[in-house]
Design a binder for these strands. Structure first.
Lengths: 195, 195
DNA sequence: ATCGTATATGAACAACCGTTCATATAGAAC
DNA sequence: GTTCTATATGAACGGTTGTTCATATACGAT
C-alpha cells in the first residue's frame, strides 16, 4: 500500500511538528525516535522526510518558530510608556505568553545543547534580543531614577529566571488564578528593582 | 577474602561516576552511551557493570549523592538567627554551593524526567526538603513582620528560581567576583520579600 | 479516461544501543 | 609457589537508531 489517505501535505506537516513538540517536551529530543513521532502522526517513519530534511532540522524549526513568535508578539506591545509601566507590561506579557506555550518554552531552553553549533547561535541570538528588550526597560528606569539595580544585565537575567520559575509549578485550575500569579510576581519584581 | 589493597574497585568506581557526571551534564543522559562513559574512563563497556547495575542507577546515584550533599551542607549552617540573617545566609550558601558543582546542579534538574517513577519520587522528596527550609525562613520573617510576601510557597520558588539563574551566566574570572554576585542577588532578594 | 505528480509505504542499510557472559589476568593470601 | 578471587576483556545478544529509496497509490489536471 501507499498513500492510504488523500493529499495531506498542508495537514501532515503541522501534525508532525505538533507531535514532535509534545514528544520532545515530554521525553527529550535525544530520547524520542523518528518512528515514535511517525506513530503519533499515524504514518510511517519514511514519510517524515517529506517534511523535514532530518531530525535536527525538526528541532531547530520548533525552537526558531517559537522565538520568532515571542519577539513578534512582544513587538506588538505599546512601548510608549514610563519604565515602571513598561516593566509591569513585560512581566504580564512574559508570564502569559509563556504559560500558553509550556511545551515550546520547555524545549526552547532544555534542548539548546542538542542544537548544532550554527543552529545554537541563531537561537541564542533571538533569545538575546528578547533579553535586551527587558534590559532596555531597566536602563531606562535606572536613568530616570525609578529603579536602583547594581547591574542592569544581572537584574535582567534575574528577573527572567524568576519569571520562568512560574512554569515549573503553575497549573491551571490550581490555588491561584493567572491574574493573581501575575500580581504576586509583579509585586516581587517591582520591589526587587525599585529605588 | 576480598583484596584490600591494590584493588581498582575504589578507584574505578569514582572515575566512572565522574566521567558520567561530565558527559551527562554536557550531552544529556539519553544522548550518552555506556560505551562513551567507558571510553572516557579507559575501560571496556562491560566493566562498568561491576560498579552499577545499569545506566539508570548511575544517573540516580549522581543525583542522590548531590542532594544529600546539599542537605548535609545546609544543615551545618547555624540556624539560630533572625529571619533576615537566615535569609542572607541562605542566599550566600545557595549561590556558593551550587557554583562549586555546576555539573551536578545541571543534571539534578535537567535529568529528572529520565528517572524511573520511584527514583523520581525520592529525588523530588529531597528537593522539597531543601525548599521547605527556605520557606520556613520566609514564614518566620513573615510572622515577625520583617517580610511581606503574598504567598510564602510562591516566594520560595521565585527566590530559588532567581538564584538558580546565576548558574546560567556566571563564569569565574568574569566581570564580577563571587562576593559581588552574592551582594547583588542578596539586595534583590531582600527587597523582593521585605515589608 | 488518462496522465503526471505529490505523497506514503515498507523494506533495507549500517551503525549503535544497553546488557550479558565465558574467559583471561593480576595481585593478595596462604 | 600455589590458590583464590576481584576485576577487566571482548565478543555476542536482540533490538533500535536515523536515513534512504524503489515502489505503489490517490488525487488534480487534462
Amino acid at each position: 500500500m501507499a498513500r492510504t489517505q488523500g493529499s495531506h501535505s498542508d495537514i501532515t506537516g503541522p501534525r508532525i511538528r505538533k507531535a514532535a513538540l509534545g514528544l520532545f517536551a515530554r521525553h527529550g529530543y535525544a530520547a524520542v525516535s523518528m518512528r515514535q513521532i511517525a506513530k503519533d502522526v499515524g504514518v510511517q517513519a519514511g514519510a517524515l522526510y517529506n517534511y523535514t530534511p532530518d531530525k535536527q532540522s525538526l528541532l531547530f524549526r520548533l525552537m526558531h518558530d517559537h522565538m520568532q513568535d515571542l519577539l513578534a508578539a512582544y513587538a506588538e506591545l505599546d512601548s510608549l510608556a514610563d519604565a515602571e509601566t513598561a516593566l509591569r507590561r513585560f512581566v504580564g506579557f512574559h508570564i502569559r505568553f509563556h504559560m500558553e506555550r509550556p511545551d515550546e518554552v520547555f524545549i526552547a531552553y532544555m534542548e539548546l545543547r542538542n542544537l548544532t553549533p550554527e543552529n545554537f547561535s541563531e537561537i541564542e541570538g533571538l533569545r538575546r534580543a528578547y533579553e535586551d528588550s527587558l534590559e532596555a526597560i531597566l536602563r531606562d528606569g535606572q536613568k530616570a531614577g525609578l529603579f536602583a539595580v547594581a547591574d542592569t544585565k544581572i537584574a535582567t537575567l534575574a528577573v527572567i529566571a524568576m519569571l520562568n520559575g512560574v512554569m515549573t509549578w503553575y497549573r491551571a485550575g490550581g490555588r491561584l488564578s493567572l491574574d493573581e500569579v501575575e500580581q504576586v510576581y509583579w509585586d516581587m519584581v517591582r520591589r526587587a528593582v525599585t529605588a
